[in-house]
Design a protein around this nucleic acid. Sequence first.
DNA 1: CACATGTCCTTCGCATGCAAATGACTTGGT
DNA 2: ACCAAGTCATTTGCATGCGAAGGACATGTG
Lengths: 194, 194
Amino acid sequence: MPVEPNPALDLEDRIVASIRRLMRAVDLHSRRLVDEFGLTGPQLATLQEAARLGPVSASALARTVHLSGATMTGILTRLEKRGYVVRSRGAADRRTVIVTVTESGQGVLSRAPSLLQDRFRVALGSLEEWEQLMMLSNLQRIASLMDAEELDAAPHLVADARAFDQYASPSEPAASPRVVMPLADRLAPDPSPN
Amino acid sequence: MPVEPNPALDLEDRIVASIRRLMRAVDLHSRRLVDEFGLTGPQLATLQEAARLGPVSASALARTVHLSGATMTGILTRLEKRGYVVRSRGAADRRTVIVTVTESGQGVLSRAPSLLQDRFRVALGSLEEWEQLMMLSNLQRIASLMDAEELDAAPHLVADARAFDQYASPSEPAASPRVVMPLADRLAPDPSPN
DNA sequence: CACATGTCCTTCGCATGCAAATGACTTGGT
DNA sequence: ACCAAGTCATTTGCATGCGAAGGACATGTG
């Protein structure tokens, strides 16, 4: 047993604590959404993606919102019970369930609040653009490293500090822009990683 | 409805997606812990804190691991069933439940794996120190902004980019060091925020 | 065409995780 | 000393959230 304090352990403990705190905050916000809006966070996220993607299979939807198929079934059941989506069988492949957002669902979406706490949104908006990107980049980086199971050839974290080059595209293989361009342009083409 | 793309919305969507992905990864890791170790993430985190704090009340424990009292009850019930902790009534205040880690619990803790995925730990360790701190800082910042309900006097996010000054101590009121000093020193005195 | 294998969704069992209600106890005011 | 109000833990009810198993369907190989 090491007598001297282990800095690395402390770092990890703090990261774990932050994540726990973050997860709880998301959960609490989800409950507030229920009171003020009638839908939970996962339900709203699912409905949004269903609307964005158009008629889509349940499994594709599950992948998009990062949920298991089992969980998606429950979410869809509740959304369907509210009349916001409709489930139908796929024509080509009759195993698949096609999810379609109803008129009612569209209407609700147009009145839907953000999935992020207002406090956070305000603070985020007041940040410099490079800070916003850095925040997003860090989150994506962490999510990538934690979720990717074992993609063997997974590109390891570059240890040498090539400064802020990486922040614009953390897991995207595309070339990273060195010049400042509008946020929208840099955010536009997202292949899939987040 | 705005025709031109809204960069801010995209940013928020990506942040939400990253967080969902991160939360799922944490959940999946927790399930892997059950298979390989026998305890879930929340159970292990609770046990670790119980050991670190010594005999402690259930409510204090709940605050430390960022869980509600109701949830803590369930966690403790399962830990107690395994024989890793013991519940006893407080001497001074008989309402409180004092949690004590047993020998068996200590033993299990000594063999416990990290709450973070190995992949992530390795990657984190290979980062430059300033990058580690920046990552932690960003997480703490996000957690703070999302969880603090309304602490009225909550220090708002500084909009002007005072560069990296803030990364060393995001929510800590202490003076931020401008010179590079050992990681351990900077991590040492944590008043409570994370 | 038949069958093994695989995929898609649902169901089942379990562990979080929360709020609200409840019971036990403490504390402050009178 | 008494009682109102607050605090601590538990119980209850619900919504995630997962894996495993099961049923329906698809696809490739013989």
